[in-house]
Amino acid sequence: MVGNPKISWEVQENIGFVRLVDEPENRMDTRFFRELLELTKNIIPAADVAAILVTGKGRHFSSGADLEDLRKTIRGGHYSHDFLMANYRSFRFFDDVNIPVVVAIKGVCLGSGLELALHGDFRLCSADALFGLPEATFDLIPGAGGIQKFVQFAGKAKAMELIMQGKSFSAEEALRLHIVDAIFPKKELEEKAIQLAKRAAGDYRKYNKKDYLKELTHREI
């Protein structure tokens, strides 16, 4: 394949690192989705890891889908539905996989970038992170589980308001909306995410989620 990879996969001890590596914005184009499908279908299931950490290289998590590129792909007719479902299944993998998935977010986390993040078990972000589902402003909708996840975390009213308006929102607002679980200074974010992944690795139950977060943020105070 020509060009640089869009995603990197690395195992350190028992933690698997998924990094979006198409700097500066880590945009998601057709190639990104192809790589993510391969990663979630074949590579991660075969890897010996006890937790996954998803993050973006550089200043941002992801500015979301590369619309022009996706439009070209989707325009291909009946192929579009399979393509979209495959993308969604790749995201859904992080929700379904039976090991904890920690997402560390800095900079922008928009559109499909946020949809991917919403499929993790934990979302930690830096104070300068910016969130949003701007699809409606392009006359589209978030089509990869973002609507369902947003309703689940923030409730129907806020989901309707923010998805239809397509407006971006701050880290504090994301915390209020239960879209993220905790905010850390940018310098500490990755370290905290690794700490959480290690703590939850091998001993994760959904009902323990709050305990782990309490531990993590208490150390902060």
């Binding site: 996706l70 439009r71 989707i74 325009r75 579009s80 539905h81 979209l84 479902m85 969604y88 859904r92 392009f138 006359d139 589209l140 909708i141 089509g143 990869a144 589980g145 609507i147 369902q148």
Partner: peptide
């Protein structure tokens, strides 16, 4: 729900063209 979303999304892309 997600299957329906994919259909809706594809239709909106068509319409935006």
């Amino acid at each position: 729900a997600l299957k329906k979303d994919a259909e809706l999304f594809a239709r909106l892309v068509e319409e935006s063209f």
